[in-house]
Each structure stands twice: as C-alpha cells, then as structure tokens.
Amino acid sequence: MLYHLLYPLHTLLGGLNVFRYITFRAICGALTAFVIVLLLGPLFIRTMKKFQIGQVVRDDGPETHLAKQGVPTMGGMLILFSIMLSTFLWARLDISQVWLMMFVTTFYGGIGAYDDYRKIKKKNSKGLSARGKLVLQVAGASAVGLFIILLPGFDGHLSIPFLKDFRPDLGWFYVIFAILVIVGASNAVNLTDGLDGLAAGPTVVTAAVYLVFSYLAGHAVLANYLQLPYVNGSGELSIFCGAIFGACLGFLWFNAYPAQIFMGDVGSLALGGALGSVAIIIKQEFLLAIVGGVFVMEALSVILQVGYFKLTHGKRIFLMAPFHHHFEKKGWHETKVVVRFWIVSIILGLFAIATLKLR
C-alpha cells in the first residue's frame, strides 16, 4: 500500500524513490512484522490466558511436556496478523502472486484455527480428523496450483538443483505436484512444532533463503545469469518472505524455552503452506527439501515409524516420533534438541544458497 501511496510522489520528494526498491521494502516488511509481534505479544498472551485458551498436551508424550499443559496457544494468529499487515503495507498490491500468498496463508491458518479450537473445546490433542484436515489442505493447494498454471507464460518445467539441463515438463500434472509440495510442507512444519521454538527457528531460516530466491526469480537479468527460472512479479514475494522472517523472529522472543505461548496449528499449518506455495510460485520446489531439511526429517520420521510399526506388528525404529521426541527419550534436554536442530537448519540454508553456483 505504501508503495502506491508514496512512490508516485518521488518526483516531488526525491527520498521517496527508495520505495521502488524491493530490497528496501523487504527489510522494512521484516522489521514491521517483528515489531508488531514484539509489541502485541504481551497483550495477546494475557488475552489467551484470560479466555483460558491453553495448550492441550498429548498424554503419551515425554513426561516433561506435562508442564506445558495450559500454556497459551494459537499464537499463530499473531504471527499471521503481522505477516498480513506487513505484506499489505510494503508489497505492491497490483501483483497477483501477493494476493495469492495472502489467500493461501489465511486459508491454511483457518484450517489450523479450527483444529486448535476443537482441541481446546474437547480438552484433548485430537482436534480435526486427519481425513478432514487433508481434504481442506488439498482444496487450498489445488487453488494455488490451478492459479499458477493459468497465469500467462506459465512454465510447467521443474527446476532441480545441480541439474541445469534436466527440466522435465509436467504440464497439467503440475497441479498434482503443487498439491504434494504445499500439503507436504504444511504437515511437515506442523509435525515439527513440538518443542519450544523448534518450528519457528527453521521457519526463520527457510523464509530468509526464499526471500533471496524470490528476489532473484523476479529479476530478469540476475535470474538469467544464475540460470534460475524467471517469474514476472515474483520479486514482490520477497516482502512476504521478509514478513514471515520478522514475524517468526519476533515470536521466538516469547516462544523460546520456557515458552510463554505456542503457535498452535493455526501457525504451523499456515507457515508450512505459505513456504510451500512460495516454492511453487518461484519454481524452486526441490530447494524446499534442502533448506527445509529439518521439516522433511521430522515428517519422514513419522512416516517411517508408522509404516515400520504396522509391518512388524509393533516394533519401532525410533524411541518416539516425530524425530525430536526420539532425542528427548534418549535424555537430551529440550533446549539442546532445539538449538541443534537450529544449527542443522542454518547449515542447510547456507547449502541451499550455495546451489546458486552449483548448477
């Protein structure tokens, strides 16, 4: 909004010319989201306590988690509010991809909010049924996939790091691929959100990496030089990614151990869906498996555990899934698990950026 209000006046006030630069607006978007969460966080926590909107802890988890029962949850609403407001203020609103991202984030946030509501109402950790959640997630992801392939100049080729000459064309099957990426990312972040600060940290790293790639994908010259798919208008998604970065960084102020508030499914499902959608729009889908390696690891641990349990009639690969609980069961303190997962995420983020020159 500020771009449309202030940039046209740059002929009168030369300083307003700065609003034309995506880098400037991305930084401002990140700072704005960070400040919003930091300022509204205490009030939000008090409000959640007042209405007794607290975490419902699974009874089969680590015993140390029982102390988290009743800690305010649904902090994802604060994260999403700051992301949306920051994006609205600093992004160009005449770019369709910006509105698409705000739609899919809100839609997935709605799914998570309803899931959280059912958990709190029933006083258990079940929430929305897995089938019901999946149907809604697929519906939202389908809308993104259809929107993308109907855009003028749509390119159905996949972009695979390290393989610049191998770009298979999926055509209309790209919609199915988009659904797998977005739904998978949403559930992976959701599964990761099990310890204080565990999901927010890797999300900060992933958002920062996609901020860079969004900017490059929207810059014709740089995209061509780095052999990246050029996507017209995608540079504005840098502001959106910056807002995710700032919002999650601000949320960590309150979510770090011992957490004063949890993001809940309203946050984790929405953030995962948002990151998956950005990956789809800028044609960097496989990059998400690298920079979001922590999320992938968590999701795979659950899939392997469940599959092996059924095949062997009760045997387990891990002491407990998702993967972070395995280390807790081995005696690691929660903060050690979280910080080490953050370290892995940062290393993966650096490796993802390094793929720019490894093509």
Rank of each mutant, 00 (worst) to 15 (best):
G218P: 07
I244L: 15
I149K: 11
G273S: 04
G218A: 08
H4E: 15
Y308K: 08
V296G: 03
K49Y: 07
K164R: 11
L2N: 02
L5D: 04
F262E: 00
G349M: 08
L249T: 15
S277K: 07
G171S: 08
L85D: 00
D115M: 14
W332R: 12
F251W: 09
M48N: 07
G201F: 13
E63P: 02
H4V: 08
I120F: 09
K315F: 06
G246Q: 08
C248A: 09
V205N: 05
F19K: 03
S186F: 04
D59H: 14
Q284C: 10
K122L: 09
F177Q: 06
I303Q: 01
V339D: 01
G201W: 09
V204R: 03
G132W: 08
I303Y: 03
L228K: 10
I282Q: 02
G41Q: 11
V266H: 05
G267F: 01
L158Q: 09
V344W: 04
F147H: 13
L348V: 13
E334C: 14
I282A: 02
I111T: 08
G349R: 12
H333K: 15
F88K: 02
S159K: 11
P62A: 10
L249W: 01
A217E: 06
E298P: 09
S125R: 09
Q52K: 15
D169W: 14
T106W: 10
A274I: 06
S96G: 07
L180C: 13
A217S: 15
Y117F: 15
K133E: 01
A113E: 05
L134M: 15
G314Y: 10
T192A: 12
V212L: 13
S96Y: 07
M102F: 08
M1K: 13
V18N: 01
